[in-house]
């Protein structure tokens, strides 16, 4: 078990290294002069040169890379070129809103997706066809459109929930809940449809297996067979979908944060990208990959718990 975790962690580290390296060189290979981007078109050539030295950009690219890597390993991600704020601090402040949204939406999607998927798989018929039609529609609607419509209906027309902004949980749990409700729903809708479809498919597959018939032959109540045995066997593929959904949710949160004006990772990414604030961009990529690696590790561990055969290998 320990070996399993260590191996997955090592694979995650390799992934982080490869991606941050690729990002670093990608950011430095092409495009405009980053210093000119920082100082704007009116700065003089001397000012640009001074700034270049100050940011360490006069060094050879590989030296810059190892410098960055060296401090990144020690947890220092550098400072923003624009605000001079430490990148770590900046991301630390931006993570709670984003994680609140992403985790909240996944919990919501998992719960309702599983319930709806099971009901569709067990009942079949019109309900099942309805689910499939609605899912096709919902999956076609981009997350930010859902966000816009939700904002329009609940925040603008009905004035039930705040349209913009984020309140931290520590300041006021109630306002925190109100501020993330709409973004969470906007993010959850698409993944809910995907998870429901996935659960439906896996449950139908499992229901056709021999051992389900044998469990029935033992006179166990149908409900307990479905909830205990079928669901556990159907959970494997569903978890894989959930880990994919996590990546999709991070991606969509960039846009959803913009709609609701939430100061999360997505907003930081968007600002840093449009200004050309490379240390921040690099830090965001690193944080994102870490999140993905951690979630994948958790999903792998859950897979091992669900499917005893995985544990052995």
């Amino acid at each position: 078990m320990l070996m399993f975790i260590l191996r997955r962690l090592a694979a995650g580290l390799v992934l982080m290294f490869v991606i941050s390296t690729a990002t670093f060189f990608l950011l430095n290979l092409t495009g405009q002069d980053p210093v000119r981007q920082v100082l704007g078109p009116v700065a003089s050539a001397e000012q640009v040169e001074a700034k270049r030295q100050q940011l360490g950009l006069d060094q050879p690219l590989f030296a810059q890379y190892f410098e960055w890597l060296g401090s990144a390993v020690q947890g220092d991600l550098g400072r923003s070129w624009f605000t001079n704020q430490p990148v770590g601090e900046l991301l630390g402040a931006a993570l709670p809103p984003t994680l609140s949204m992403v985790v909240g939406s996944l919990l919501l999607a998992c719960f309702f997706g599983t319930v709806i998927g099971i009901i569709a798989a067990v009942r079949r018929g019109a309900l099942d066809r309805g689910l499939q039609a609605i899912s096709t529609f919902v999956q076609a609607v981009p997350g930010f459109l859902v966000a816009l419509v939700l904002a329009l209906v609940f925040a603008v027309q009905l004035r039930m929930l705040p349209a913009t902004g984020f309140t931290s949980f520590n300041d006021s749990p109630v306002r925190w809940l109100a501020s993330i409700t709409l973004p969470v729903i906007a993010l959850a809708v698409g993944s809910l449809a995907s998870i429901a479809l996935q659960v439906r498919g896996s449950v139908i597959d499992v229901l056709q297996q021999d051992f389900v018939r044998t469990l029935r032959s033992r006179g166990l109540p149908d409900q307990s067979i479905v909830v205990k045995h079928v669901l556990r066997n159907a959970a494997g593929p569903t978890l894989t979908t959930v880990s994919l959904m996590f990546i999709v949710a991070i991606s969509s949160s960039v846009i959803v944060e913009k709609v609701f004006n939430i100061p999360g990772i997505g907003t930081q990414a968007n600002n840093a990208a449009s200004r050309g604030d490379l240390p921040v961009v690099l830090g965001i990529v690193l944080v994102t990959v870490v999140l993905v690696v951690v979630v994948n590790l958790l999903v792998d561990l859950a897979q091992g718990w669900i499917n005893p055969k995985v544990r052995v290998s």
Binding site: L244, I247, I250, D277, V285
Partner: peptide
């Protein structure tokens, strides 16, 4: 596998950060 584990929009932001 590595490409699939990247959030698409974040990567796009990275690329556009340099190119405009």
């Amino acid at each position: 596998g590595a490409l699939l584990s990247l959030p698409a929009i974040v990567v796009l932001l990275v690329v556009l950060a340099r190119v405009g």
